[in-house]
């Protein structure tokens, strides 16, 4: 094999064609197509203030939708909304 010094001076080095790079890049990134938790980009993290993402008091309102009105009619049919006699 050639002497390392020859390697240093060999001139098979050319500038890189741009399209070539794109194809290689595409090929190189096949690794990412997966439904797993991915690595995060290594950049700065700041604390993002997020509000009102969750709601734990949703039962407070009576949620008077169509369903509620129908249910009320149904319930009235059997109880007449009378307090129970005992």
């Amino acid at each position: 094999m050639a002497d390392p010094k020859d390697k240093n001076t060999s001139t098979d080095a050319e500038t890189t064609p741009a399209e070539d790079e794109k194809t290689v890049e595409k090929k190189v990134n096949v690794l990412e197509d997966d439904d797993e938790f991915e690595d995060f980009p290594a950049d700065e993290w700041e604390d993002v203030k997020i509000e009102h993402q969750w709601q734990d008091t949703w039962e407070d309102d009576n949620n008077e939708d169509d369903f509620y009105n129908q249910l009320m009619n149904e319930t009235e049919k059997i109880t007449g909304v009378q307090p129970m006699k005992l």
Partner: peptide
């Protein structure tokens, strides 16, 4: 709970109320 509210939050309710719902 909705049935309970509709019935006016009583302390006694028939099982049939729930059955009906």
């Amino acid at each position: 709970k909705k049935v309970y509210n509709i019935e006016g939050k009583p302390t006694r309710m028939y099982v049939s109320s729930f059955k009906h719902a």
